[in-house]
């Protein structure tokens, strides 16, 4: 029983991390109908930002987290500016190719700038400490991850549903041309979307680094794919869907290892099977609508 609860917590922690990064995929898709394949590398870059500000500039972790968020948001905006905006009127395939290209560019840039050898992500003692609850030993980090996710998603849903920027985002995602005619600043709205998505990826990256303290320029590849799967499972374009998709995928992965230890080597396979199944049975995902809007 204790093991089961422990496994559930493992799954929820992993799922929250998936969810935070999946939001970036889903927001960009919602607004541009583009699967931003470079998102996983933005996630990777955020870990290096945090790594350098802690290990090289000796900043406290919370300052580094803020810097990483800002830096990554800026990178996301920049990426959109140079790789996607010039292709705004181009066929969708061109933008997709540009996204794949940007992904490789960032990875190789990472190898040149940071080196291919794995670096050790710094530890934060406070978050790494253990708490004992009813016989369960849980790391404070697990709570931190779950609470951060709830707070951030709450804030995000507020922004998207209640603020002017959010209304603009939803308008743009519904109809590009009409919202332009109505005086919505399309470029600004898209930039903000990228900034928010990348910022959340930075939070996810930071906590990912604390939990799995090893970073390489290719560290984003597999988590990126998983988060993309999470976004699709939840219904790409839907923020709630991204979170639910992340949680489902996270808990599913952990439970497969727990319940079928002999199949544990194939956990990635199950994630991809889930992707294929959902695309066959319910392509709009669990929470997506036919005409997907935000949230």
């Amino acid at each position: 029983m204790l093991t089961l609860v422990q496994q559930l917590i493992n799954g929820l922690t992993l799922g929250c991390l998936f969810g935070l990064v999946a939001i970036g995929y889903t927001m960009v898709y919602g607004i541009l109908l583009l699967i931003n394949f470079a998102h996983c590398d933005i996630f990777m870059m955020s870990m290096y930002f945090a790594f350098y500000s802690i290990s090289v500039f000796y900043l406290p972790w919370y300052v580094s987290l803020v810097l990483a968020i800002l830096g990554t948001a800026l990178l996301g905006v920049l990426l959109e500016r140079v790789a996607y905006r010039p292709l705004r009127t181009a066929p969708r395939t061109s933008v997709l190719i540009s996204a794949v290209g940007s992904s490789y560019l960032l990875e190789n840039l990472g190898i040149v700038l940071f080196g291919a050898v794995a670096k050790s992500f710094p530890t934060v003692d406070y978050l790494q400490e253990m708490v004992t609850i009813a016989g369960l030993r849980i790391q404070r980090l697990a709570f931190f991850v779950i609470i951060t996710m709830i707070v951030l998603v709450g804030a995000l849903l507020y922004i998207v549903n209640k603020t002017k920027v959010g209304i603009a985002m939803r308008a743009v995602s519904r109809d590009f041309e009409t919202s332009k005619l109505m005086g919505v600043n399309i470029n600004l709205t898209i930039s903000i979307t990228f900034a928010i998505g990348s910022g959340l990826a930075a939070v996810g990256g930071f906590m990912w680094g604390l939990r799995y303290p090893q970073i390489t320029p290719l560290v984003g590849a597999m988590p990126g794919l998983k988060c993309f799967i999470a976004a699709v499972i939840g219904g790409i374009g839907s923020i709630k869907g991204a979170i639910m998709g992340g949680l489902i995928l996270g808990v599913m992965e952990i439970m497969i290892v727990y319940l079928f230890p002999s199949a544990s080597g194939y956990r990635d396979v199950f994630a991809f099977i889930a992707l294929i199944l959902i695309l066959c049975i319910k392509p709009t995902g669990l929470f997506g609508e036919e005409l997907s809007d935000k949230a």
Binding site: T3, Q6, Q7, N10, G11, T13, L14, W208, R211, Y212, Q214, L218, V219, A221, M222, P223, E253, I254, M255, V257, Y258, P261, S262, S264, G265, Y266, R267, D268
Partner: peptide
């Protein structure tokens, strides 16, 4: 007593370790 597997590049071992 227990035999579990993972893939090169995997980062999450929490489930396997708990088991």
């Amino acid at each position: 007593v227990e035999e579990l597997y993972f893939n090169t590049g995997d980062q999450d071992f929490s489930a396997a370790l708990t088991t």
